[in-house]
């Protein structure tokens, strides 16, 4: 490789930065508008009434919610923030947050299309299955953590505040007034999440334009190197889960398990998401989640290398 590994251009950075903003803002806006409606119209105790009492079953249900309520990774954070405030257990929320960008029909379809001719059905099943499994494992891990170690103080307060509001049912305020309140809640979430989104997109754009990606190619020869290399690349590129499979499929020199690791790790954790998650979770938890997912997905994919060429 003759080119330097790092070469920065402010024009390239601005271009990549803007393109991700223009693509991502609609999904964040949708998520925050939805979060505003949840805030005002979803009865606080409904979640707890609907969820199974068994913690394991509740986490698993969180993992499959993505099929029913598909959300992309950018838009989901404001939604789970409100769902947590409305009584969704944090463990189920984490499982939903991690699984939904993968376990949904759009991602399944795009993965199948991208890997046509490369064992598309098996690969798509593995991606969805592993995504669900890892999300549930992460959710179960959160079950054992004190809530104060997971949620930011402001979010924790919103959970505490929403608990003693009686039956949590609809207030007698006029519908229009509640719509205005929903708008305000949505706007507040939008502004909060956008701060982190902008920081994350800035860091991701810096790396995706300035770092020479051929740097990763020599690592493709060994599964033990290829898997972490592809997960690192997924973290840097911060791609959308609806299209990342098309990019992953082009890394032909990398083994299939490394591409699988790319496609499972990327929608769960990347530079942009690390910042967005910080709108809800403590920094320590986000760091632990990033490391935990990296290690867990890496080890599982290494194990899968036995069955996947």
């Amino acid at each position: 490789m003759n080119a330097p590994w790092f070469s920065f251009s402010v024009q390239d950075f601005s271009y990549a930065f803007l393109s991700v903003l223009l693509e991502g803002v609609p999904f964040i806006l949708l998520g925050t508008l939805l979060s505003g409606l949840i805030d005002q119209f979803l009865p606080a105790r409904l979640m707890t009434r609907l969820l199974p009492r068994n913690a394991f079953a509740a986490v698993c249900l969180g993992g499959v919610l993505g099929i029913v309520f598909p959300m992309c990774e950018c838009g989901i954070v404001p939604v789970i923030r409100r769902l947590i405030a409305k009584g969704l257990p944090v463990s189920s929320a984490v499982a939903y947050m991690l699984a939904a960008p993968i376990v949904n029909p759009i991602t399944a379809f795009s993965t199948y299309a991208a890997f046509r001719g490369q064992g598309a059905a098996e690969f798509t099943s593995l991606r969805l299955g592993l995504g669900f499994f890892v999300a549930v494992l992460a959710g179960l891990a959160v079950l054992n953590l004190p809530i104060g170690a997971v949620l930011k103080k402001t979010i924790l307060e919103s959970v505490t505040l929403s608990c003693p509001t009686g039956d949590g049912g609809p207030s007698p305020r006029a519908f229009l007034r509640r719509l205005v309140s929903a708008m305000e809640a949505g706007v507040r979430d939008f502004l909060d999440v956008m701060v982190y989104f902008i920081l994350g997109v800035g860091v991701a754009s810096l790396f995706s334009t300035a770092v020479n990606q051929e740097l990763f190619l020599p690592l493709s020869l060994d599964d033990r190197l290829a898997i972490p290399a592809m997960m690192t690349l997924a973290g840097i590129l911060s791609l959308c889960s609806s299209s990342d499979a098309f990019i992953a499929a082009t890394f032909v020199s990398f083994p299939a398990v490394a591409k699988l690791a790319f496609l499972v790790f990327g929608p769960m954790m990347d530079l942009k998401l690390a910042f967005i998650y910080s709108a809800v979770f403590t920094r320590k938890f986000v760091a632990a989640l990033a490391i935990g997912l990296f290690v867990m997905i890496g080890l599982l994919c290494l194990r899968l290398a036995i069955v996947l060429p």
């Binding site: 251009s9 024009q11 990549a16 902008i198």
Partner: peptide, 24 residues
Amino acid sequence: LLTIPLLAATKLSPSNFGATAVMN
């Protein structure tokens, strides 16, 4: 943070990649 980077990028972005990003 919510306004300056957006406006600066809108002003600075040439709406295409330069050679650096393409080569990278």
